[in-house]
Design a binder for these strands. Structure first.
Lengths: 343, 343
DNA sequence: CTGAAAGCGCTTACAG
DNA sequence: CTGAAAGCGCTTACAG
């Protein structure tokens, strides 16, 4: 059963393809009678326009591409959900690609999307991405691009972010407020802007509260799929290196949970001996024991905002209006739980 | 900067579009010299074939649709990951749609995919889906379809599943083996095959071990996004209704974790007072306290297998070979953890 | 070895 | 109010 075409409808009705096409799209210069006949037949034959033919003519695929480092991830899956919900509202479909934190894959995937002629691209960078030629190529080809969460400041496009620095500052200050004197930091990899910013927020909070910054208290976690394991390792290493750490601000919840597991195994009490603040508010953090204090990162909303920005750009492009790049900053909040409840 | 077309390459080289097209595709009837010239120019101009024109001619979009009840979900996000990884290998792109457990949305999304002329569809049914006309329409239009995890036995297509009944039997038997005498079941909604099968497996295990099946010990959880809350509610209700329950087999981990939280709040010890087995092996289950015994459900592998089956069908269709429907059953395993560690 | 021609299914400017 | 024609960018059977 081959799909029905305009031609078939035209033939059955003894009119031209042109008229059928116009009738279905409610052009004003088609008689009511014809419109009715055409629409009825289209309905009974279950006619669906061939989207590829339409795209070829109109140059609009009504499809966008989404490149994301990791799908199995509480934060990112919320972003995905926000994006597809918003895209659906506007009649757009979303092709999802996973970069696996690899620069090479990310690059290839941009190529793929380019050749698929998507109307726009949404991306959160891989940890390994330090070169932005592939993104600038996209922009040069006038494909609307919006970056979210893991962005590159240097790339000239719209962005949706949180203020990582401020949030990290808040998290660290919370540890100071409850009386921690020697605060460590498990940071993310070196490249991504947000792990840099979180580190800087941590450092600034220490300085502002007269606590000497000690580089030996900063541990790097690659935060790949193995986050949980890395948290355990860093916790272990920290126990070997230091005896007087009483608080840790950790780059992401999954690493924090790994660390907590390891500390508990070694008889370190949380929060009595070491208080911990994570980042991202994964659902898990609210059900483990002790529950984990963390920073709430609005994934769903970020997805929605990112699509909205992209939609505006796609619309402007279609109307040949100038495109202005915007950066939307979403609010985060400190969530206090048992892992920082002293006294 | 408009995308480069074959015509432009042809004009610059002073040859025909036909020859350019053939040269790029390494047709044997084009001279080596011409091929080289064409390929070089295509490279420098960064030529990418317009996929919509290609599709319009070849009737192959190299894109498949995926409809899934929920994206923010440990099991399903693993399935997604498996699908896009496998699809990418074979040069297919994946459009993801979320049905939100709604039958109406699911139906609309099938329509959408149909009009987008995807080469195939992968689906896991919404809880609310009890009518299968939309799926049979797809099949009637000869669009390859593979169902996974949440399937309808009655629909005639390929499927990837686990043996829910057997797995539930194993889980319940484990409770019996550690000495539980009065075992409750928190089941999923009424419609989906897998919550039915898990219930049946539970019941069968009781019968086979001379434990009277008591319907008042079966609680229904809708297992929507609110799973965690439902687990809490059912746990609470159970404490009101019964005093001698010593084991529960729970339809999914998230519900189980909600239940555990509530039991602990009420001073019920796990596993001493009540032992618990969940289902699906969410990552979370390995880090909460006590760790949760559960059934391992291979999400990533299920995604891979589902795409593989779909790929075969798409290939057969292209070659006009008959399509044979297959059902692949994946292995599950019981994972014993603290929540069932008696003595 | 090369290219003119037809056609995939649609849209739209234009003529009548 | 209707329709012939051109064209989107590609592929491929056919002729030379």
């Amino acid at each position: 059963m081959k799909p029905v075409t305009l031609k078939q409808i035209a033939e059955q009705l003894g009119i031209s393809v042109t008229t059928v096409s116009k009738a279905l799209k409610d052009y004003p210069d088609v008689s009511k009678k014809t419109k009715k006949l055409v629409k009825q037949l289209a309905e009974t034959l279950n006619y669906k326009p061939n989207s590829f033919a339409v795209t070829l003519r109109t140059k609009e695929s009504k499809t966008i591409g989404l490149i994301i480092p990791e799908v199995v991830h509480h934060f990112f899956s919320n972003v995905i959900k926000g994006i597809i919900a918003q895209a659906e509202k506007k009649g757009y479909l979303v092709i999802i690609l996973q970069s696996n934190e690899s620069y090479d894959l990310e690059k290839q995937q941009i190529e793929l999307l380019l050749s698929k002629r998507v109307d726009g691209v949404l991306i959160s960078l891989a940890n390994a991405t330090g070169d932005y030629k592939h993104l600038n190529d996209l922009i040069a080809q006038e494909v609307p691009l919006v970056m979210f969460d893991k962005i590159a400041k240097i790339v000239n496009c719209s962005k949706v972010i949180i203020n990582d620095r401020k949030a990290a500052y808040t998290a660290t200050k919370h540890l100071i407020d409850i009386g921690c004197k020697r605060i460590a930091h498990f940071r993310g990899p070196l490249l991504p802007q947000n792990s840099i910013d979180r580190f800087l927020g941590y450092k600034q909070a220490l300085i502002d509260h007269n606590i000497t910054y000690d580089p030996s208290l900063v541990y790097i976690c690659d935060c790949s799929v193995k986050s949980f394991e890395e948290g355990k390792q860093s916790a272990n290493q920290l126990l070997k290196d230091h005896t007087n750490v009483d608080g840790i601000f950790i780059n992401t919840d999954l690493v924090a949970i790994g660390a907590m597991t390891e500390f508990q195994k070694n008889g370190v009490r949380i929060p009595e001996d070491i208080a911990i603040v994570g980042f991202s508010n994964w659902f898990m953090s609210s059900v483990i024991s002790p529950t984990l204090s963390t920073i709430d990162q609005p994934g769903y909303q970020m997805g929605k905002e990112a699509f909205k920005l992209l939609y505006k750009e796609m619309k402007s492009k279609k109307q040949n209006l100038p495109i202005e790049y915007k950066t939307v900053e979403l609010e985060t909040g400190l969530i206090k739980r048992e892992s920082t409840k002293k006294n």
